[in-house]
Nucleic acid binder design. Structure first.
Lengths: 154, 154
DNA sequence: ATTATGTCTACTAATATGGTAGACTATTCA
DNA sequence: TGAATAGTCTACCATATTAGTAGACATAAT
């Protein structure tokens, strides 16, 4: 899996919307300004996120975007799969399984790829916007939980 | 991290060389034939692997390629980094650390990327050509150890 | 010398990435 | 009702990456 610039922009935009959850529609322009993203490009990204049912839009004056679900119900895996494709380092989960089952000579190689995919999925499917949004405190002690770290360390 | 077609070819070629370790130089043509890879493309890939000191070449008639180190001392991480770049899903390890240290607002996002990178690195830095080469038995019981699975399951 | 092989440089076609431009549509508010 | 405001949609565009191919050249074996 590779996260593109576009994927990063999507995550940044969603973090802004998460920080203002239940505060009404936020304009594309405001998101772009706050995160310093190219406005027209962000338009396309938000459209994609809308089609993927992560955000909703309000048209016309006083319009804008807001999250369709609470921040703790939107996971990084969903965002990355939507804008950057499968989490697997090669093909996708189903494709890898196919290869593992059919290609005896390379079974073990593809199994390693699958292991990598599973490790990434495990982290990203358990980290939500709520876990990363909000410009909160430095690392120091465990004042606030950090989901992905917890998993990585278990 | 994304493994390209080229990265897969590199791994396939190295698996062939691992299977014939200490059997002298193997011709590009033979590797290409055995794994059904485009011969001219494979040339370039092997050159790259030679520059990265994973293989050595013998020129002229009776020439070919062989591994420079035993199969259990060439890890998938090294191969993938050589042909497909950093294991991190965004930027590379050092770049991510920089971002974590400097960009307060997105620290937690970049930390998740770092976690994903570390998970991938953990698997790939502990799986060698010896672990995946050889067209050996089906999964069934644990007749033979499988390094990457062991790690993924610990 | 001839043949077999790796080396090197240059090209290419197709696709992905990271955008920009502008017309169009829907909504608010005076 | 008609500006003004904001999202929607289609079409471009430049550049980089991917996945190769072609061919001349260098080196070694026989």
């Amino acid at each position: 899996m590779k996260v593109s610039q576009k994927g990063l922009y999507a995550l940044q935009a969603l973090m802004v919307l998460a920080g203002r959850y239940r505060q009404g529609a936020i304009r594309i322009r405001d998101i772009a300004y706050e995160e310093n993203l190219p406005e027209k490009f962000l338009e396309l990204i938000l459209l994609e996120l809308k089609n993927a049912r992560m955000v909703e839009s309000v048209r016309g004056a006083k319009g804008g975007y807001h999250l369709k679900r609470p921040p703790n119900q939107i996971f990084l895996s969903e965002v990355i799969r939507t804008v950057d494709g499968p989490l697997a380092p090669f093909a996708d989960g189903a494709g890898l399984q196919e290869l593992i089952d059919s290609d005896k000579a390379h079974r073990r190689l593809y199994s390693v790829f699958m292991d990598v995919r599973n490790a990434a999925a495990h982290i990203l499917e358990n980290t939500s916007l709520a876990d990363i949004a909000g410009d909160v405190s430095p690392p120091e002690a465990n004042k606030k939980k950090h989901r992905s770290r917890q998993i990585a360390e278990h």
